[in-house]
Amino acid sequence: MISPVASVAAVDRWVAAQRVRPDPPAAAPPVFRAWRSPVGWSVFRYRPRLVPFGRLLWLPGGAFVRAITAAHWAMVEKLADETGFEAVVVCYPLLPRVRAAQAVDDLVGLIAAVNDAEAKRMVVMGDSAGAGLSLAATQEMARRGLRLPAALALVSPWVDLRLVDPGQPALEAGSAPLTIAGMRRCGELYAGELGLAHPAVSPLLGTMAGLPPLTLVGGTADLLFPDARRLAGAAAAADVPVRLLKAVDAPHNYPLTEHSDAAEAQAALVAACVH
């Protein structure tokens, strides 16, 4: 099967097909329970203990065209078990039904609802497109003066949807099924009228000041790693506590796989919750 992000044409065909059918239902494992979210998104919760130590909220990636996978569910369940946190998995709408402006605003409302007094300590996490959306929403919360999560932890974050870093073309050949042209097309459709350079779309271009401590996890063979490195630098320049864990020659989203460096990355995500 051709990846929906293999080319501009592949993206356009995929999105056109999705116009006539709804987003696929999220096949959550039995331990996850559906929760009626205040913004109408599909949200699932897993509580590994009667009185959780905190909450972690995870937004899965997929370039705004692919739904959550079994690897996402397994990762979140493992993190919840190891931290004692209640896990909240957010399945946001996909293209062609998602646009950045509404998605960021909806996620701000959802984070605010989940980050209540019962949460104790709230950590927002995500991978790839979900990581970028998580960062954009947290920046918007800071701009509005809202209560922020205690920490952010982002895996292989897609934070500049323009994909203009000079180091990215050299990484493209080893990043299949990700392609610069296909990913950028997804970004254009997601951005809508805002355009790719708007901070709500590409939060690497947004304001870092006032963000909570930031953990970044990426592999140096990932097409998106150059932007993770730039994000780490921008956050540090704004006096945001930041940790960048890089795995040499590791691919996109390697912590969700059986890669040899995955265990270290997962430990870093646990540390972001409990420290």
Results as ranks from 00 to 15, higher is better:
50 L>C: 03
173 A>I: 14
269 L>W: 07
37 S>Y: 01
259 H>R: 05
154 L>M: 06
202 S>K: 11
272 A>T: 00
194 L>D: 02
77 E>W: 08
218 G>A: 09
125 M>I: 08
88 V>G: 01
140 E>W: 14
143 R>F: 15
210 G>S: 15
16 A>N: 14
147 R>W: 08
96 P>H: 06
187 G>H: 05
68 I>V: 15
179 T>Q: 01
192 G>F: 00
149 P>Q: 05
17 A>D: 10
55 R>G: 01
112 A>I: 07
18 Q>I: 08
60 P>V: 01
263 A>S: 11
124 V>A: 02
232 A>S: 14
101 A>D: 09
166 P>R: 07
142 A>P: 06
75 M>T: 12
20 V>E: 13
198 H>T: 13
270 V>W: 03
49 R>N: 01
54 G>N: 05
166 P>Y: 08
266 Q>T: 10
5 V>W: 01
174 G>A: 15
157 P>I: 15
166 P>K: 11
174 G>M: 08
154 L>R: 07
143 R>H: 15
237 A>V: 08
226 P>H: 01
132 G>S: 09
183 M>V: 09
31 V>C: 10
35 W>L: 02
108 V>C: 14
136 A>K: 11
258 E>R: 06
162 R>S: 04
34 A>M: 00
209 A>V: 15
274 V>R: 01
78 K>A: 13
73 W>R: 11
164 V>L: 08
91 C>M: 00
75 M>W: 14
131 A>F: 00
155 V>N: 14
189 L>H: 06
75 M>E: 12
10 A>H: 13
43 V>E: 04
104 V>Y: 03
26 A>M: 12
242 V>Q: 02
70 A>E: 14
230 R>M: 08
225 F>H: 02
206 G>H: 14
173 A>Q: 13
2 I>E: 00
79 L>W: 03
180 I>F: 03
209 A>K: 13
192 G>T: 01
110 L>V: 09
11 V>G: 08
126 G>I: 12
78 K>Q: 15
262 A>S: 08
213 P>G: 10
253 N>I: 00
44 F>D: 07
34 A>W: 02
240 V>G: 07
31 V>I: 08
242 V>A: 02
197 A>G: 09
231 L>K: 04
206 G>C: 14
10 A>Q: 06
235 A>W: 14
167 G>A: 11
12 D>T: 05
67 A>W: 02
139 Q>T: 12
67 A>D: 11
88 V>F: 04
150 A>T: 09
48 P>W: 08
226 P>I: 00
160 D>M: 14
25 P>Q: 15
260 S>D: 05
40 G>M: 07
180 I>R: 00
139 Q>M: 15
212 P>N: 04
58 W>T: 03
82 E>L: 12
65 V>R: 03
20 V>F: 15
215 T>P: 00
143 R>N: 13
102 Q>M: 07
92 Y>M: 12
166 P>A: 12
173 A>D: 13
60 P>L: 04
122 M>L: 07
74 A>E: 12
